[in-house]
Amino acid sequence: MSRLKFLIPCLLPLLTLGCSGEASNSWNGHDITGVMPDLEFELTNQDGDRVTAEDYRGKIKLMFFGYTSCQHVCPVALSKLAEATRALGEQADQVEILFVAVDPKRDKPVLDEYVSHFKPELVGLTGTQEELKEVAKRYRVAFSYEKPRKDGFYIVNHSGAVFAFGPEGKSRLLIDDQAKASSITADLRRLLEQSKG
């Protein structure tokens, strides 16, 4: 019994450690706070204006790399992000979805129309090959073009992940393509709560 008395105070801190560990794991996405660099880019938006990360300061940012001619992956992923944002209700305007289109040849002419199909409207971002590659490299993602088919259509290989950034541009979460809209909403709620405090 005396040994037990001695053991309990020793083990208590471990117990609380276990609890705090669980708390930090309750994100649905992968916590990448401090793992990746802050949001930084210089690209052109769907209206043809030059924009930087500073322009979206104060909002939660969800960044996704894709291309407008993408038939399956991108529309599904982007509608999911839009749905997750809509579910926030009044707070939806505190979230910005940044769609980095990595196929400028085909994206530039249609980007404006493409992003207006989603509710809330996305921010479409494009640029020169160098500018896009720089952003991709910064977030350790890759994109590449496959050989064109006979009709000229070609597939672009790109990343499936969504990167979430805090209001100050700090990297917060990596959300993989398996995530459900409801779990993204839950993560967004938590990010918004934390940014208030």
Binding site: F65, R140, V141, A142, S144, G160, D176
Partner: peptide, 12 residues
Amino acid sequence: FGIYAACGRILP
């Protein structure tokens, strides 16, 4: 290793 799907595989 889901990280490669998340960040984009460059080889087909």
